[in-house]
């Protein structure tokens, strides 16, 4: 059974370290906050410069709800949908950065042994580290998505654009899949941490995580599917299964014996 008092102590220490590491904090906060601004700027530009080829983009052709839009509004919807998918990268990137510094960093500084000598279970330690990495990632993702949603209302050429950009599937993904993507990211980082000695290596290897989101990005752009409720739910279910599997493996890697005798 996990004792939440101990978990809170771990989380508190992780966040205290994060606050003290200004470089890491800036690296974690700036790119996510720039993403909505960059995306809104692009969508605003789409509303000014119309391109007749926009209607030929497969993503526009497959969705009948876009049929009666002006070229500018259509461009804004298409780009809005595409770039809104990129917000799903945030719950993977931010926890990955935090978890790699937290776990590989402890390994490098050789602080794991005193920590493991304390009367806490490895589950408590792992849960503490996972939550300390996941919570900022999810909150920052939702904050950026909210900035994007509010900003979108201000930059669109047609009031119908936001309702078409924010597809139910995207909202489902944002609410349900974000925590799962974050958990997958951290689980993978834990697994990688046992084999690397540099947080950046852990981050680079975990870069494979962006593949599912890029599949969504390009799949939607090519008109292979629209991110509706069914796609959103199916994708979330798939992620749930992946999360369970990876956390199971990560929990096996993250054992006292394993860390002290096999981690290089």
């Amino acid at each position: 059974m996990v004792r939440w008092e101990r978990v809170k102590v771990i989380i508190g220490k992780e966040w205290l370290e994060l606050r003290r590491s200004r470089g890491l904090l800036a690296g974690m906060l700036l790119p996510p906050l720039l993403l909505p601004l960059f995306t809104l700027g692009l969508i605003f530009a789409m509303g000014i410069v119309s391109d007749p080829d926009t209607a030929d983009i497969p993503a526009a052709a497959v969705d009948p709800t876009l049929a009666n839009l002006s070229l500018e509004a259509l461009a804004q919807v298409i780009f809005g949908r595409q770039f809104s998918v990129l917000f799903l990268l945030l719950p993977m990137i931010i926890p990955n950065v935090l978890a790699s510094y937290s776990i590989v960093g402890e390994k490098n500084r050789r602080t794991l042994e005193p920590l493991l000598a304390a009367p806490i279970t490895v589950s408590e330690l792992l849960v503490g580290k996972v939550l300390a990495a996941i919570i900022p990632g999810i909150l920052l993702t939702w904050l950026c998505a909210t900035i994007f949603a509010i900003g979108l209302v201000l930059v669109v050429v047609d009031p119908v654009v936001p309702t078409l950009v924010f597809q139910p599937g995207w909202l489902i993904m944002l609410i349900f899949a974000s925590p799962l993507l974050a958990a997958i990211s951290v689980a993978l980082t834990v697994m990688i941490s046992s084999r690397v000695n540099d947080p950046r290596s852990a981050q680079q290897i975990a870069g494979v995580l962006i593949v599912p989101v890029m599949l969504l990005f390009f799949g939607q752009m090519l008109g292979l599917f629209v991110l509706d409720v069914i796609v959103g739910l199916n994708f979330s279910l798939l992620l749930l299964l992946l999360t369970v599997g990876l956390i199971w493996i990560a929990a096996r890697v993250f054992q006292r014996e394993e860390i002290l005798t096999r981690w290089r």
Binding site: T111, E113, P114
Partner: peptide
């Protein structure tokens, strides 16, 4: 246990290091 290397958190202060571990010990 005093391990071969001190294994302290460099970004934390001396008192923060100690309070963190004391709280882990309940």
């Amino acid at each position: 246990i005093l391990t071969e290397t001190p294994g302290l958190y460099d970004a934390l202060s001396a008192i923060e290091n100690l309070v963190f571990f004391a709280r882990l010990y309940g």
